[in-house]
Amino acid sequence: MIYSEKVMDHFANPRNVGEIENADGIGEVGNAKCGDIMKMYLKINGGIIEDVKFKTFGCGAAVATSSMATELIKGKSIEEALKLTNKAVIEALDGLPPAKIHCSVLAEEAMKAAIADYYTRQGLDPELYVGKVSHNCDACEGCK
């Protein structure tokens, strides 16, 4: 298994690591049993993701995909962020080994879970905006 230079760069120097105090939305996906957990924090102002931070427990690809996902949505509107797919994350990282595709799925879900949390806090039904977000491994290809 070989990681691209981009993956290694995002693993070695992850962007936007940390937490946001008084975040407007927090999403956590994955579980310890499977070996990866991603937690994403959003600061949202006027529908724009002003700041985003993440914490990840997991392999090199898990760290790199979370890092890349935060870069791709920072400064974007919520609508734009919701268009982000795991494929875009993979492309931006110049590819992932097949066994690691599920990490990119997790990164997409972490972001969506954080946005869903934002809507919930606004008293809105997140499903109307984000659709169904799985908070566990259900969507993880790897586990099937």
Partner: peptide
Amino acid sequence: RLRSMSPLWE
């Protein structure tokens, strides 16, 4: 370093 970015450790 890894623990500082691990939600599990947190």
